[in-house]
């Protein structure tokens, strides 16, 4: 019996995998970035289905918005959207595909045969589950220290990015 949930999941899963593969095979880096934006949007819809509206919108604003715009900006700044194909290690591509298939076989074995994860998705969670209020309550009580550490991490990343790309006037090149 195909429920509407399952049909929705299958359609979105096909879109997610197709866009991921599109990112993998595109010759042009701009197309790759745009495929990845679509993939992140699809995953945001999955978050909505899983009862995580706050995380879904964070995904759209931070990943699909900020991070991918940064990627597109750097691709266009460097003008390296297409690299000439040069073969240095000929055996690398078949080896990578073979190892990916081995990893896939292990995953199928663990997930579908050993059944290491079980249970049904609760598709009607309480109205409070995953709401900004519930997330904020947890973030500022139970996870206050990691939250503050993250703010320091973001500051360090900002300083690092400026130092790495700055012109270093007055210092050594």
């Amino acid at each position: 019996m195909m429920t509407i949930d399952l049909i929705l999941f299958l359609i979105l899963a096909v879109v997610a995998i197709a866009t991921a593969l599109g990112m993998l095979v595109s010759r042009n880096a701009v197309y790759s970035a745009l495929f990845l934006v679509l993939n992140f949007a699809t995953v945001a819809v999955f978050y909505l289905l899983l009862g995580a509206p706050f995380i879904a919108l964070t995904q759209v604003t931070v990943y699909a918005g900020a991070i991918m715009v940064l990627f597109l900006f750097v691709i266009m700044l460097l003008g390296t959207d297409e690299l000439p194909e040069r073969k240095v290690l000929n055996w690398q591509k078949p080896m990578a595909i073979f190892l990916a298939l081995v990893l896939m076989a292990e995953g199928v074995y663990l997930i579908f045969i050993q059944k290491s994860a079980s249970g049904l998705i609760n598709n009607a969670p309480g109205a409070d589950f995953g709401s900004p209020q519930a997330i904020g309550d947890m973030l500022f009580n139970k996870y206050l220290l990691p939250f503050e550490v993250t703010s320091i991490l973001l500051l360090v990343a900002m300083v690092g990015a400026i130092v790495l790309t700055g012109n270093m006037k007055g210092g050594q090149s």
Binding site: T3, I17, A20
Partner: peptide, 18 residues
Amino acid sequence: MVPVTYYVALSAVLFIIG
């Protein structure tokens, strides 16, 4: 109701593509 197995499998496939 979708089993969590499907989501984990999708996550694994995306990870392997990455």
